[in-house]
Design a protein around this nucleic acid. Structure first.
Lengths: 235, 235
DNA sequence: CCGCGGAACTGCACTGAGTGCCATATGCGC
DNA sequence: GCGCATATGGCACTCAGTGCAGTTCCGCGG
């Protein structure tokens, strides 16, 4: 809370002016000079707040990435790693959900402008790296630890983005959390691992190629899957 | 083979001149004027062959992406989808393996220059989209088909990149295929690969809060999950 | 009230990427 | 030779981004 708690109103004015122009005349048709003219400030000030023209479209991702890094750094061994990175991804969703209309406007922009899509990729990549680095640490001893970390981080980000986009396509109606929970649940069911009071796998006297698993109705899916995996003797 | 089989020597000369300068003085310290001066051509010609300065670093990705798209388009229902996208990813690896020293030089460049990393991301993203689009088509009827397509595509790309990078870090020694096969094997084991006879959900006379699912030992995990979901009556 | 130092802001000139337009060359069929 | 298409070169322009110097604003001690 030391570095960036004070809000410069100029920053917000620049963002507002920029989006107004982007929406009415397009991103590439708007020059930085146009933005600063509308905001009534000097051109040089723009680049003091935003290192590039693209940055004004993602004004809060720097802070969000810092939040995510802090969140992951505050983890301990009690946290299930996959669960933890899913929760970290939810931080990003929360940021989007805080300003639905702004997020939807930005979504429409990035969907149309290739340059902004490319920039968004580099932003998302930094989230993904943060998740992967955390997982690498947690999977340190494991065989193929870095491989698993990279793959799981990519899967979490992909699931998150899939859900986020489908929410954005609905103009921010409905509950974004539900969509994302469902998508992340799929990832957890694929890679799942979780510290949980167990469902009970019962392997009775069955024909050799079948396994019977009994689980609670209403139990979370990933938990059921975990039981299946161990009952099937997977690692 | 119609569009781009004839190779303009000028293109290759530009790439050679560019990399010579990039390696001896760095990417950002080299201007396009420097490159065209060394290659002995006009500045305007550079931008005829490469839409941007970054493109000269990835001269063959456009062709490779086209190859991948064609490869996926030539698929039929006999191909197991996950297997197929893994094979498509191997096409990219093959391109890298064709010129190990060039690939290693480029890797060192992209590792150091943020602008090139960002550009590489947008290249990789297009591969990922190609894989995801293919999977979306194959998963068309399936519940959460697009979600699964996006996640699996991301996982395949992440695994491929993980293996590719570790190979590049060894200066291109050893067999890249082995590394990538292993990495992709991990993804296939997580998302299942083989086409399998269906599992049979049996809901007998159980106490009300339990469900019994019988599945084949060795069935792919996603298949089991599907059975579970429908047996639990989820939507 | 005055001066003073620092921080925020502005203006200006400069580099370099990328584009549009037109001129020129080179090749080829006739 | 001519006409024509294509490849290339030259030039001027826009715009993003940077370095530098000047200015305004504000708090603070005298």
């Amino acid at each position: 809370m030391s570095s960036s708690s004070a809000k410069p109103p100029m920053r917000d004015a620049l963002v507002a002016a920029a989006f107004q122009l982007f929406l009415e005349r397009g991103y590439e048709q708007t020059t930085v000079d146009d933005i600063v003219a509308l905001a009534g400030v000097g051109r040089r000030s723009f680049f003091r707040y935003f290192p590039s023209k693209e940055d004004v479209v993602f004004p809060d991702h720097e802070r969000c990435l810092a939040d995510m890094t802090a969140f992951l750094a505050a983890s301990d061994d009690g946290h299930e790693p996959v669960q933890r990175v899913c929760d970290a991804a939810r931080l990003v969703l929360r940021m989007y959900a805080e300003n639905p209309t702004f997020s939807v406007q930005r979504y429409r922009l990035t969907k149309k402008v290739p340059g902004l899509r490319a920039y968004e990729l580099s932003v998302v990549w930094r989230y993904e790296r943060a998740l992967a680095e955390y997982l690498r640490g947690r999977f340190a001893g494991r065989r193929d630890g870095t491989l698993q970390a990279d793959v799981i981080a990519a899967a979490v980000v992909a699931a998150h983005n899939n859900a986020l986009r489908s929410w954005l396509r609905t103009d921010g109606q409905g509950d974004a959390s539900d969509t994302v929970d469902h998508a992340l649940g799929y990832v957890q069911s694929a890679f799942g691992a979780a510290p949980v009071p167990p469902a009970v796998p019962l392997t009775g006297e069955q024909p050799e190629d079948v396994v019977v698993i009994v689980s609670r109705r209403g139990a979370p899916l990933w938990r059921v899957v975990q039981e299946i995996e161990s009952a099937l003797g997977r690692d």
